[in-house]
């Protein structure tokens, strides 16, 4: 029995600048628990746009979006922020760690915001995630001092800290060398296989996509495969 974590029905979106243009043309997507979905397609096909709609950060769309059994269409920005905090983890192409903070603090921030656990417990959890990613030795370093691959692993730890229903990635390996790409892919693979973590990631790395459990290919605002 598969549990559904994300379902989008009839997602349609227009861009109005520089002129009216339909980016997404009635897209239906569904992600089950433990699935590693790669979203691929040529540049400009709308895959990133779709990802940001699914991430709840973009609210300018038509259609129905259900994440973790919650229908999110009419939620306010602040409610959606709280929802993202609890249910969605993000990994971006650029690692976007807060440069003044230590690795540990960066990972702890979403959990402190969630305020579900005591600070000491959050710290323990953050260490657990770091160990899982082999980064425990760097915990107290300022994040700006890490290499790109290390920063991306910290970003993944941060995405995991609140035990989200789904992790979303926008070109998570786009800025990494092949060694680190392999590393990140292995981490994702382990997360889905061992921890049954659901992941949806936009990528144009064929090799990366080929290793995922399902590929969704897009072209001209539609899913073609």
């Amino acid at each position: 029995m598969k549990t559904e974590v994300l379902r989008a029905t009839g997602i349609t979106k227009y861009f109005y600048e520089p002129e009216k243009f339909q980016v997404l043309k009635g897209i239906d997507v569904q992600v089950n628990k433990g699935e590693f979905v790669a979203l691929v397609g040529k540049s400009g096909c709308g895959k990133s746009t779709l990802m940001y709609v699914l991430s709840t950060m973009d609210t300018q769309y038509e259609g129905e979006l259900v994440v973790a059994s919650e229908k999110l269409n009419d939620w306010s920005q602040n409610q959606l922020a709280a929802f993202r905090n609890k249910h969605i983890g993000f990994v971006f192409q650029f690692h976007y760690l807060l440069p003044e903070f230590t690795v540990l603090q960066n990972i702890m921030l979403p959990a402190l915001k969630l305020n579900r656990w005591q600070e000491s417990e959050v710290e323990d959890r953050a260490y657990t995630k770091l160990k899982m990613l082999g980064m425990q030795d760097h915990a107290l370093k300022v994040s700006a001092k890490l290499s790109g691959g290390q920063q991306q692993r910290v970003a993944i730890a941060r995405a995991l800290i609140n035990e989200p229903d789904i992790i979303m990635g926008d070109e998570p390996t786009g800025n990494l060398d092949s060694y680190n790409t392999q590393l990140v892919f292995d981490i994702f693979k382990e997360l889905t296989d061992v921890y049954h973590q659901s992941i949806i990631a936009v990528t144009h790395d064929e090799e990366f996509a080929a290793k995922s459990s399902r590929i969704i290919e897009m072209a001209d605002g539609k899913i073609i495969h």
Binding site: A81, N85, F90, Y96, K113
Partner: peptide, 16 residues
């Protein structure tokens, strides 16, 4: 700007 964007993605609201 980047920090603000990531904070918002992680679930920090406008008032935060």
């Amino acid at each position: 700007m980047k920090d603000i964007a990531i904070l918002k993605a992680m679930g920090f609201s406008g008032p935060d």
